[in-house]
Amino acid sequence: MPEDMPLNSLGLRKPPSQTRVVVAMSGGVDSSVVAAMLKDEGYDVIGVTLQLYDHGAALSKKGACCAGIDIHDARRVAEEMNFPHYVLDYENIFQEAVIDEFADSYLGGATPVPCIRCNERVKFKDLLETAKDLEADVMATGHYIQRKSGDNGPELHSATDANRDQSYFLFSTTPEQLEFLRFPLGHLPSKDATRELAAKYDLVVANKPDSQDICFVPDGNYAGVIEKLRPGSAEPGQIVHADGRVLGEHKGVIHYTIGQRRGLGIGGLEEPLYVVRLDVDKKHVVVGPKEMLATRTIPVREINWLGDEPFTSRKEWQLSVKVRSTRPPREAIVRPLSDTEAEVELLTPEEGVSPGQACVFYAQDHAEGDSRIYGGGWIWRG
């Protein structure tokens, strides 16, 4: 294409009609709006939905994605907007790449975030390769995050609407993937704006509720899923105070998470106690006062770096980091130990930092409006 041709809305110097876009469709409002919007703009749209687990078991579950009625909804949107739609059976890949690790990580006393692994190992890996096989120019998703052009290539930025921002779950997106990906909803001011677009295109999913929890964990019952995946995993043990006192019995370490206070079953004590450590080998749930939850130094590995300079080009980086999806980024010093490992020092200690969670890197002055994401890694020991 001639260099003087203006960029289309996806940043390519091609007419929309000659630009093929694969849209990852979960059956929800967000990805449906992306597909409809791009089709309306004249792009060559192909919708792809992944069946990630037994849809028969999920047909009646509200708030899931990628199964049962959601596949049906995605297909209906494609029919309404007149573009091709494919359903790919990714059950085995999802089981191996996401569910099995989730179970093993949980049994190891960690607090895993399978949605990140799903994006990293399934949607932005296998599905992205499928999009290229379909000769797509780009792949678009309904995630609330922004891709911006920088001096050194595309950059990842938080969504305009902080309440919808999904950057914590997308930190492992690589620079190579970012070249191919597009996120058309990231600049919208609110979810209401997305639903207005759904109404504009008269989509059948316009009023569909948002998905909640982890798609393969019905009703948020993590322990119940783990027991099904790993029979016999809920072995009883002792609830032990950090000073060594045995305070009671529990029905399995998998029923507890770091920072938990309620439901410990050890009432009658003068001080409020929290789960501060899970000792899987001894089958101990270790509890202690709230101050024991405070963490200042966090070891991080499997780092995906999205900065302009090599990660190890500096002895330390002044950044903000987020150690839980529901918490705001906090100022920190990130000290590289290798290309993929670092020690993160929080300037203000955080409570309830748990192995298995992600530590995501943001611009130091994120709170002042610098929305750039510098990648992140996985917290690997408490």
Results as ranks from 00 to 15, higher is better:
M81E: 04
F183D: 06
Y86W: 09
R182P: 08
Y222F: 12
H55P: 14
A159D: 11
C115M: 15
K315S: 15
E179L: 12
L306A: 09
P355V: 06
G268D: 04
E316S: 15
T160I: 07
L59W: 14
P154T: 08
P84C: 04
I254K: 07
V300A: 11
V246L: 05
G307W: 02
P272G: 07
R76V: 08
V113L: 15
R262Q: 13
P84N: 04
A193T: 05
Q318D: 14
D243L: 03
R277P: 00
E96S: 15
V286K: 04
E302L: 14
A162W: 13
A199R: 12
A199H: 10
S172Y: 02
E270C: 09
E129K: 13
V204H: 05
N92I: 09
L178W: 06
L10N: 01
S320T: 06
I71D: 04
D100A: 14
T326M: 12
G153Y: 04
V285F: 06
L293H: 10
G109E: 09
S31Q: 03
D30Y: 00
K61M: 12
G220V: 03
R327M: 09
A193M: 03
Y168N: 07
Y222P: 01
R262G: 15
I333D: 10
G244P: 10
I303N: 11
I239D: 05
Q318H: 13
I214S: 03
V29I: 08
G252F: 06
F171V: 04
I71W: 01
V323T: 15
E345G: 02
A332R: 02
P231D: 05
D104T: 13
P329S: 03
A35E: 02
D133A: 10
D210F: 00
